[in-house]
Design a protein around this nucleic acid. Structure first.
Length: 595
RNA sequence: GGCCCCAUAGUUCAAGGGAUAGAACGGAAGUUUCCUAAACUUCAGAUUCAGGUUCGAGUCCUGGUGGGGCUACCA
């Protein structure tokens, strides 16, 4: 419709004022609720052509459109806005299509024949996942779903930073103070156990620094020369030399961590198509750097370290290989990117990584381009904002880091408490109930995080932020459950809901409003792709739900005036439920049959 | 110091240069003999400041203030 209108407006302006208009000047928008009409054309841009007042220009164009577009039955102009009134038949026909089309709003999977790679999660193996990772995972997973719904082939990938000094710290602490403990013996998730040893290292290390300072060393020197740190570096070198004892320990402790991560991923409901490991990709990175060095794209300093000079691009010099030949983060990322292009020949690669790494990705893209990879331009850093607590940033030192597992189970506990207080599920088995609590608790958490524009920082108050009323996941889930309940009741009464419709009567205003909102779904799915933000899906689901709740409140579905209306309302409910389910599905949020 | 990002009701979030800036929570007041009241209805309440561009600015530009990030041979 929008396309037809755009063309017709062009025609109108040409026939009325003999001028060609640029499509960009044709602004069509939803008519604001406070005015009569369905679609609004902003006429200000045409005043220069018409040389007439806004109202008059609007009327002239309106007349032309009404005569030439059969779906338009009327119009009004208010200052520079031409509000077009569409025939109800236009909306009910559209509704007919939705009833019939189970894939309404989605393009066929892979129909574009283009692959998008989405990297998200990217944990270090020395600590458990926390709230920041949750935001990262949810954004990455939702985006993957959104791309898929828009016809792309999607590969979800994870890059695990499994090597480096931070893991050595945990390993060393375990050797020194672990007394052979394992996750099984400790009764603890492996990622948590390894994280504990990381903390232990930092504590002991700090004591040593303090001791050295008291003995008269300056701070810098103390930081560098503390025996524990020296030992950790020694361990890193032994790891890089491939010493069996170290490699075995490394494998063992990492496997604990992976088991723990898997559990967290599973309870969050995210998954990956492929997991890359930096212990693997850093070698590729080094090769890339060395060969670029040969081609003199990079240069070597006297101490043997390898650098790239990005001063022409307005940046600095950046180190790529240390003087001892070991690699840095950037080197690994070069290797990872290269391997991924080899694996998938992606059309686009999205890195879901926090905005504190903006500079890093700017360098990465420039560097790949300089080295000569034509796909460098296809890399996009989805730079999401920090999650902060009411009192500021999460700080591990102050113990304010919100653990992912803890948060998830707290959410489920809250859902359990609320549900049991309401007592609506008393007839269900424990297992059924637990499943519903899980769906609601996670729904609350995921929706709360995803409704915020990823690019913005957000504040998360673990105690107060998460509601189950208002603009929340459970609110939307509740509406879905009510719809399902009505449909069950209809089935019990032997009312069949056909999957075709031909509405011959005039629906009421609220019903038309609902249809209009439902009709927006395909555009919303596209917008989420273009803007790369799940937030537009979340906001849409909320708006749709609110609209449905008003309809549900104002009109009876099962006790409608006549059969025709009853069937129509059931279909309207069914389609709404389906769109809610699909929309929430794009966010990775499940919807319960009852709650 | 240099570079980048952000600033909207008491609070947490919306608003592709377009109409009277939307919600939610919290506050005040209502709705249930009726399909799930985790719902619905009503009221009060906001664009950090100073300029500029534009027919039109929360949105674009310049500057100030306030907050965050980056600026490692860390990741």
């Amino acid at each position: 419709m929008e396309k037809i209108l755009t063309d017709k407006v062009k025609e109108a302006v040409f026939s009325l004022y003999n001028r060609q208009v640029d499509e960009k000047q044709i602004q069509l928008q939803k008519t604001s609720k406070d005015f009569a009409g369905d679609i609004t054309l902003v006429v200000f841009p045409f005043l220069g052509f018409s040389k007439k007042k806004p109202e008059e220009t609007g009327k002239e164009i309106g007349n032309y459109l009404q005569e030439n577009v059969k779906e338009i039955t009327g119009f009004n102009t208010i200052s520079g806005f031409l509000n077009l009134v569409m025939d109800n038949k236009y909306w009910t026909d559209l509704f007919g299509k939705m009833v019939n089309d189970r894939d309404f709003g989605f393009k066929k999977k892979g129909s574009l024949n283009k692959t998008i790679l989405v990297e998200f999660s990217s944990p270090n193996t020395n600590k458990p996942l926390h709230l920041g990772h949750i935001r990262n995972n949810l954004i990455g997973y939702a985006l993957s779903k959104i791309f898929e719904a828009n016809g792309y082939r999607v590969k979800k990938v994870n890059i695990v930073n499994d090597r480096g000094i931070h893991i050595c710290k945990s390993m060393l602490a375990w050797q020194k103070w672990g007394e052979g403990i394992t996750p099984e013996k400790a009764g603890k998730k492996g990622d948590k156990l390894v994280g504990d040893f990381y903390v232990k290292f930092e504590q002991e290390y700090k004591k040593q620094i303090q001791f050295l300072i008291e003995k008269g060393a300056n701070k810098d020197k103390a930081v560098r020369s503390a025996p524990l740190m020296k030992e950790a570096h020694k361990m890193l070198r032994r790891w890089e030399d491939g010493e069996q004892e170290i490699i075995d320990l490394w494998n063992r402790m990492n496997s604990w961590v992976y088991k723990g991560f898997d559990k967290t991923y599973k309870s969050l409901g995210v998954s990956f198509d492929k997991i890359y490991y930096e212990s693997d990709t850093y070698k590729t990175g080094r090769e890339i750097v060395l060969s670029a060095l040969e081609k003199e794209i990079l240069f070597k300093k006297e101490d043997g370290s390898v650098w790239v000079d990005l001063s022409e691009e307005g940046l600095d010099e950046k180190v790529l290989l240390r003087s001892d030949g070991t690699t840095v983060y950037m080197t690994q990322d070069l290797g990872t990117a290269f391997q991924r292009y080899n694996d998938y020949e992606f059309f686009r690669q999205i890195y879901v990584v926090g905005n504190e790494q903006n500079y890093h990705f700017q360098v990465l893209v420039l560097l790949l381009d300089k080295i000569g990879y034509k796909w460098a331009k296809d890399i996009y850093h989805l730079s999401y904002g920090m999650v902060e607590l009411p009192e500021g940033k999460m700080k591990s030192r102050e113990g304010t880091v919100v653990d992912a597992d803890d948060l998830i189970s707290e959410m489920i506990d809250t859902a359990r408490d609320m549900s049991e207080e309401l007592g609506k599920l008393d007839t269900y088995s424990e297992k059924q109930k637990e499943d519903i609590f899980r769906i609601i608790g996670l729904g609350a958490l995921k929706y709360f995080i995803l409704k915020v524009d990823p690019r913005k920082n957000m504040i998360f108050n673990p105690k107060e932020s998460i509601d189950f009323n208002g603009n929340t996941g459970p609110f939307i889930q509740y509406t879905y459950a009510r719809i399902k309940s009505v449909i069950r009741k209809a089935t019990e009464k032997n009312i069949k809901i056909p999957d075709k419709t031909d509405v011959r009567f005039e629906p009421n205003k609220k019903e038309i409003e609902l249809i209009k909102l439902l009709a927006e779904f395909p555009k919303i799915v596209q917008d989420a792709d273009f803007q790369m933000t799940p937030a537009v899906i979340a906001n849409y689901c909320y708006e749709l739900t609110k609209e449905f709740n008003q309809f549900y409140h104002d009109f009876s579905i099962l006790n409608a005036e006549d059969d025709e209306t009853r069937i129509f309302r059931l279909q309207l409910s069914e389609v709404t439920g389906r769109i809610i389910e699909k929309g929430m599905g794009l966010l990775g949020i499940e919807v319960p049959e009852r709650m």
